[in-house]
Design a protein around this nucleic acid. Structure first.
Lengths: 246, 246
DNA sequence: TTAATTTTGTTGCACAGTGTTACAAACATC
DNA sequence: GATGTTTGTAACACTGTGCAACAAAATTAA
């Protein structure tokens, strides 16, 4: 592949300028766009490898745009959001973004996310886009809904139970975003066949469930790297290794 | 004051361009510089309100430059460092910067730091700069070494013991930087009159000391806001309120 | 100097948050 | 219905921290 081509969709001109300048200097070919129309123009011209899509686009809703882009084109999308993490959570599940990044963001982190998504290559990743075959992918981890199997980057496969599968889905749909136990439980309950509300899931079931999933997907479950706990908050799913020493 | 004037000292052209562009768009008058010579030129012209100084300046050492600038000019300095937090720790004490920010940084965070330092106004803040009178200031907190008194932003004064004073000094010299108990203990021991090494301070004395200082400087010591604990790491001193929800 | 006072360090206990195991209940399969 | 699997519950352990009470050390006053 020649220079990767990014489409930056952002209607705040200051933000857009900054992002474009930074990404160009980081070795990408960058096109700016401010609305659905301009996106389509670039897409028709077939010159985009990855879309960075702002969630707040004036009157247009980035999430809707994301969803419709998914149906039309086979292209990875990273959502850029100024909303608090809380508001973003769960939306990936509905909308099928490949990744998220919250504004204001660390430029290097943006770069890392862009590169990670591009690294995954053509094999598209989101639930919405490949919903017919129910294949989830996130940085190498693949879940095939039909067989309840998960494939690690190295090709190793593990069998998951329904509940474990559900947890993994929620996590895959919310990379890098810390989810509280309540949010996870809620998503799992919603996804349940019966419409059981179940409400205040006061127990520790999520903890145990997380422990079980870790035993299956972590190399060393005692020192989790993919499914990490955020003390006092909940759990985060991420294949990026983010040490404190940078 | 008219438009605040910032001097961005950064020899990596990409980084410099980004910072300059962003800060200009944020309403500052920005001048770039890449070495000590250029800094002096701008300083002589008397057109700088705040210096953003990269610690890694090719062959020149930013820390040395910081120190010498301190001696020549009465101007606040924010150190920008690509080093890991560990390497930065304690340097403020020697060098007298007004604040730090680690690369890669969140643009909004940089803005917040710049504004905070400018807000402090003329009353310069660092140990080195005012070492004759031993007045430390950080966002309103003032420590007058002679009287072992601390003045809060609201003018309220508290008396501190020697050890508490020492702790506060170390904290003031390392705003926003998480310090481990070992680092704090070491700094305190070094500052002691006798040259006692004391080595592996295995006890919990720092915890208790922190608790005592909290009781004096925190509005609600049970829910510390200024002197926060970073679980598994140590303690951070910061007057910025940084909630998770942005 | 000696006594009183203040400061500092130590120790033990409490507590929150999480991991983990064992077991019981629910569910699925045959 | 019997058997095996999955899921939830409960109890316990472990870690990191706050805190109070005490003891030792240092400082100040008499």
């Amino acid at each position: 592949m020649s220079l990767p081509r990014l489409l930056v969709v952002e209607d705040d001109p200051e933000m857009a300028d900054m992002m474009v300048a930074f990404l160009r200097k980081s070795g990408f070919m960058v096109f700016p766009a401010v609305n659905r129309n301009e996106i389509s123009k670039h897409m028709e011209a077939g010159r985009v490898d990855l879309i960075l899509l702002d969630v707040m686009l004036g009157r247009e809703n980035g999430l809707d745009i994301c969803q419709s882009l998914r149906q039309e084109y086979d292209i990875p999308i990273i959502l850029v959001s100024a909303l608090s993490a809380d508001d973003q959570r769960m939306h990936g599940y509905q909308v099928g973004a490949d990744d998220y990044i919250a504004k204001p963001f660390n430029p290097e982190l943006l770069l890392a996310r862009v590169r990670a998504v591009l690294r995954r290559g053509h094999r598209s990743s989101s639930l919405t886009y490949r919903r017919n075959t129910s294949v989830y992918t996130f940085d190498g981890w693949t879940y095939d809904g039909k067989k309840d199997l998960v494939t690690a980057p190295d090709g190793f496969q593990v069998a998951l139970s329904k509940r474990e599968t559900g947890l993994l889905k929620v996590l895959l749909a919310n990379p890098h975003i810390p989810l509280t136990r309540e949010e996870i439980a809620e998503s799992l309950d919603v996804a349940r066949s019966d419409g059981q509300a179940m409400e205040t899931s006061e127990g520790r079931s999520i903890d145990v469930l997380v422990g079980r999933l870790r035993n299956k997907i972590e190399v060393n479950p005692k020192e989790p790297e993919i499914l990490r706990t955020e003390r006092g908050v909940g759990y985060v799913f991420s294949t990026d290794v983010m040490t404190k020493d940078g």
